[in-house]
């Protein structure tokens, strides 16, 4: 049994890993669909990030609690069942309390089910670790995902409309780059962002 201090340190490390070292989008290249699809503006990106945190959190808890009872060959089925249930709940929640946002995100909310991040964490972490570690892992990964989404969305929204979080930032003379709001902008911004991250990590290994 490790002392309380070292346990806290390892929790902090797990959490931080999700944000930088094992950032799901920038390092593991998981969950690309929502990353590209909902990052035209910060608001939907943030909503998406929070929904993913919720689903990841709940599914990690359930999977971690069941980990000793799981039959190996029925494992994936169990994961999908859990995930799709929580995604449905998240979808209903958005429809009931944030109808405008739910319409903007459209089919990308149910598509969280096939977001590789969640099933990957269930398989790689929650089905092997204790409840506490799984929860911290879910929060770290979720935070990393949300942060990346917001950065990407911030860049795109700024260039596409001159606003961030619907607040005017650019001077009036700025001509919006409409292409940044379209699929092209998503692909190229993410490509360059990945390049930038590669550049930073190569300098300080």
């Amino acid at each position: 049994m490790p002392s309380n201090d070292s346990a806290n340190v390892s929790f902090a490390r797990t959490f931080a890993a999700g944000i930088w070292n094992e950032n799901p989008v920038l390092r593991l290249l998981l969950g690309m669909c929502p990353t590209l699809a909902v990052t035209a503006a910060v608001k939907p990106a943030l909503t998406m990030g929070l929904s993913v945190i919720f689903v990841l959190f709940c599914s990690n808890i359930v999977v971690s609690l069941m980990r000793n009872m799981l039959k190996p060959h029925l494992r994936i089925l169990m994961f999908t069942l859990t995930i799709s249930t929580f995604v449905t709940i998240a979808d209903l929640f958005l429809k009931a309390f944030a109808p405008v946002m739910s319409e903007t995100l459209g089919p990308y909310v149910p598509l969280i089910i096939v977001n590789c991040i969640i099933i990957c964490r269930a398989e790689a972490c929650a089905s092997k670790n204790t409840l506490a570690v799984s929860i911290v892992d879910a929060l770290g990964m979720g935070a990393g995902f949300t942060l990346t989404l917001c950065v990407l969305a911030g860049i795109r929204e700024l260039l596409a409309t001159g606003k961030v979080f619907e607040i005017q930032v650019m001077p009036g003379a700025f001509v919006p780059w409409a292409a940044m709001g379209m699929p092209v902008g998503a692909f190229i911004t993410l490509g360059l962002l990945l390049g930038a991250v590669n550049l930073i990590t190569r300098k300080n290994p």
């Binding site: 089925l77 169990m78 069942l81």
Partner: peptide, 18 residues
């Protein structure tokens, strides 16, 4: 499959409630 079946029931109930 008992776990799968039990979980289906629980999740179904959860969805129905929400």
């Amino acid at each position: 499959s008992w776990l799968l079946i039990a979980a289906s029931f629980v999740f179904g109930l959860l969805l129905a409630v929400t």
